[in-house]
Design a protein around this nucleic acid. Structure first.
Lengths: 386, 386
DNA sequence: GGCACTTACTTTTGAGGCGAAAGAATCCTG
DNA sequence: CAGGATTCTTTCGCCTCAAAAGTAAGTGCC
């Protein structure tokens, strides 16, 4: 796809795996890479030479710890030149577009957000092109654009269905490519976040890894053998039918006691509003719960128990090495983390390995960063998927 | 391990993958193998030649369907000589040892069961050796023995903990090896069944595959990328804390409404007995439920709903291509299969891919067959795991 | 029956990746 | 400064594989 995408030269499989290893796992000496990829030292010399000559890798002086003075010839760490290329990531929400510029290492070096006036595909593409033009001024060497959208995305290029944008079969990648001339990848926002965390975040190097997001909706991503498992119902309402508590609350969305009803921000706000007649933000509700106001405390505790059950179920059946909890709703963990953990424990076998649950406080720029990682992957892998 | 295990010659990785492909997927022509393993036709000639010369593979006349007369030179299917070796599989229960002899293709060619008088390790090993001696008379060329035990097994050789045998750290493989002179593999019974189904059964060729067994207990096995995921709590009471219905029955084992309480045979018998004061077998209860006797019907329906919830949860989180339901308790599906399926559907996203749920009526000889497959794997792979 | 065509398999050849082993570089230790 | 340790490089041969050409064995059509 996207023939304009000047991918990383014609890399041989061996070279590519070396490049990815260095890209993802920071500076590494040749010996260390050989150990990780189970190759001989000789092969490493062979594989790294062209990568260094092409400027993709460089030998860095001595990675941080010269203190650790070992015997023998000092190792010569290799690293990618993180600043050699820039990547653009967008997250489209109902009323905003969040944009970030990242390095090859997926570090955010710039942010740029703009309100979204309408949902016409051409209009959205125009706005993305404008934002790209704004950002490209300070960041030349832009190598690609990644776009994250809530909804079903096909072939990493077409939005098949997006409820909040009212889109069906919009070839967003093509629209933005023709306006910017840059290679564009479009992906479901949760999928993009999962890829980002798998490559550069909590899931680095893990074999079985789960990402769970709570916010306006529920997001679930499963990584097995280092690559994401595609889901048929991808983000067309995850969790609507995950019944966590048959006696749980009934909300406009989702079945009674479903993950949607118990965990999403709109549902929690709805519950409080239905009971009090007043509107509170999610943060206000969490604060009230922390202050032990009875009604919010009960709703939040119920939500926390549901989260515990959900995490326990995932752990029981998938046995991931780590579960990453992200999204705008993770404030729940701060207020009721103990309830969550107790619930997890009571729904797990006492001899089972403890769940490695990591919470990541995240805003919309993290979603955009996730999208940018897709652009990195395309550059590195040549538009194939991991 | 087990140096006596005359494994399949020193097979190169390429040769081994060819051998396994033919072993698992029946007679295959060279072209077909090349297609499946993504190799060139030339490589296939190279790889198959030594396998044929060593007698491991043979060219078979024409596999069954000469009717399908295609144009061109007819293909020359290759096959393993299923009867060239025999394998022995044992399943140890509290009061019986079930034994089977299988071919290389894992077809059962003989059965032999004996009551188990006591649980002393030496006594059990003696019995296994006697049964082996009985069976080896009619089946020479015995290549190895596999033993399945409920409980925790380490290194495929030592029973770390088995509640019903009251064993701790019993080196069962060594005990049987020194009595029989044959290579022995010991494994958890569920794990063995999972391996068998992955190689020769419902899970053949699948990437994500789940085995769920209901019987005296609950068994759960997860296969990802073609190999089984090891669990920390392996068969030390799966399902004890899987709460499927918080309002479910309370039984001596497991938490209220747990998979153990709702699905295992002893718990269902306990529920009926507690309500009626009489003892019924599981089969009797199912028959009464089918005849719409109110109490059994209610208990069985509750059990079926729980199974549906469990299957739906597994599907939601693991997204396996297939779930195999096995064990002595699968009669539930015959009586209440519709309830199970309806429950699954109501706990799944309407757009989610339908669950491929396969029920396998199985007795203890299937467990023994699973153990025999381990012996096959050791022979083929050289005692490594898949 | 002969000729074209199709498909399956074999042989040959050449390129490329890999590891083993030997050698060079560069540090520490005494 | 010698000796050892560790990393990296070089060389060499092996193995694997793909490509291409050749052989085998059938069908279809005249």
């Amino acid at each position: 796809m996207t023939p304009g995408a000047a991918s990383w030269l014609p890399l041989s499989p061996g070279e590519r795996s070396v490049a990815i290893e260095v890209l993802v796992h920071g500076p590494l000496s040749r010996t260390e890479i050989a150990r990780r990829l189970d190759l001989s030292a000789g092969s490493l010399t062979r594989l790294t030479k062209p990568l260094i000559e092409s400027g993709l890798l460089v030998e860095v002086p001595e990675a941080g710890a010269p203190a650790e003075a070992r015997q023998g010839r000092p190792s010569q760490p290799l690293d990618v030149v993180a600043e050699s290329r820039s990547f653009l990531g967008f997250k489209i929400t109902e009323d905003m577009v969040y944009g970030v510029v990242t390095t090859l290492r997926s570090h955010i070096v710039a942010r740029h957000d703009r309100p979204l006036a309408g949902h016409d595909p051409a209009l959205v593409a125009d706005l993305l092109a404008e934002m790209t033009a704004d950002l490209v001024r300070d960041h030349p060497r832009l190598a690609g654009i990644g776009i994250g959208v809530g909804g079903l995305v096909r072939d990493r290029s077409t939005v098949g269905e997006s409820a909040f944008l009212h889109w069906r079969d919009v070839p967003l990648a093509a629209l933005v490519e023709e306006r910017t001339g840059l290679p564009v990848v479009v992906e479901n926002d949760v999928a993009a976040l999962v890829e980002a965390e798998t490559w550069f975040g909590a899931g680095r190097g893990l074999d079985r890894f789960v990402v769970l997001t709570i916010g306006a909706g529920i997001g679930y991503g499963l990584v097995l053998g280092g690559s994401r498992v595609p889901y048929a119902e991808e983000d067309r309402g995850f969790g609507r039918h995950w019944i966590l508590d048959p006696n749980g609350p009934l909300t406009p969305d989702g079945e009674r006691g479903s993950a949607i009803s118990l965990l999403t921000i709109p549902s929690i706000r709805y519950q409080i509003q239905a009971a009090t007649g007043r509107e509170y933000t999610y943060e206000e509700i969490l604060a009230l719960a922390a202050a032990e106001e009875p009604l919010p405390a009960r709703v939040v505790a119920e939500s926390a128990r549901a989260l515990g059950i959900l995490v326990a179920q995932i752990s029981n059946f998938v046995m991931p090495q780590k579960i990453l909890l992200a999204g705008e709703g993770v404030g729940l963990m701060e207020v009721a983390g103990k309830v969550v953990e107790d619930t997890i424990r009571s729904h797990r076998h006492p001899l089972a390995a403890p769940v490695d649950l990591e919470t990541k406080v995240s805003d919309f720029h993290d979603w955009a960063r996730g999208a940018a990682v897709l652009a990195i992957q395309v550059l590195v892998l040549g538009s194939a998927d991991a």
